[in-house]
Amino acid sequence: MTIQQIAPLYTAVATAENGRDGRVSTDDGKLDVVVNPPKEMGGSGAGTNPEQLFAAGYSACFQGALGVVARREKADISGSTVTAKVSIGKTDGGGFGLAVELTASIPNVDAATAQDLLEKAHQVCPYSNATRGNIKVELSVV
């Protein structure tokens, strides 16, 4: 597999302290959150967790990619939403892995058009490009 090369337009910087049971903050101070393992993984669940942060980033990025595709296709995606469900679980090799479900609601287009827009956005979205071939990503329309 060829490693994708980019010409950076922006670089986000975040620093974690104490891993999954600590704090994550960005260098510009716009994000500063307590992270704790969820109760389902034996933690307190008091703070957010890396999977929620990834789901937030992926859903926002994918919604942006959907907008790019919609403009190209001249499709009306006003009022649309994208929800990302990020699951974490054990892999066969003894480590941990992720799986993602992306669900979109696009009220102003028919189901076939919505699915086509999702498939095309999946080719544009940087998160999709970063995860392709590495984790399972399912796309669906509601």
Rank of each mutant, 00 (worst) to 15 (best):
G93F: 11
Q63I: 03
A104P: 01
T81W: 01
N108I: 03
K90L: 08
T91A: 13
Y127G: 04
H122D: 14
I6Q: 09
D116F: 05
A111N: 12
A14R: 01
T81N: 05
R20H: 08
K90P: 00
G79T: 06
I135H: 03
A56G: 14
R71T: 14
A65R: 02
A84W: 01
D32P: 05
D32H: 10
L118Q: 10
L139T: 08
T15K: 14
G47E: 05
A60Y: 09
S87L: 04
R71W: 00
V33G: 03
G22H: 07
G43D: 04
T26A: 08
K85T: 15
I6T: 11
S25Y: 10
R132V: 07
L102M: 04
T83V: 12
V86G: 06
T131A: 14
T48W: 02
A14V: 06
A104L: 06
L102V: 05
G22E: 05
G89N: 04
H122V: 07
A7M: 13
T11N: 11
E73N: 12
E40I: 02
A112D: 15
A56H: 07
T131N: 09
D32E: 11
L118A: 10
S105T: 12
Q63D: 14
I77C: 03
K39F: 00
A130N: 12
R23C: 01
G29Q: 13
N129K: 15
M41N: 06
D27Y: 00
G45Q: 10
K39V: 15
G64S: 14
P107K: 10
G42Q: 06
G47I: 02
N18A: 13
A55V: 06
G94F: 05
G133Y: 11
Q5K: 13
G89V: 01
L9I: 14
A84C: 08
G89Q: 02
Q5M: 04
S140D: 10
R72W: 10
E119L: 12
R72E: 15
T15H: 14
D92C: 00
S25C: 05
A112W: 02
V137L: 03
A121L: 10
D116Q: 14
P126M: 12
I88V: 13
G47T: 05
N18E: 13
G45D: 11
E101W: 00
T15N: 13
V82P: 03
P107E: 07
P50E: 04
S128M: 09
E138A: 15
V13F: 01
G47Q: 04
V109G: 07
A114V: 07
S105I: 00
E17L: 09
N18V: 00
D76Q: 05
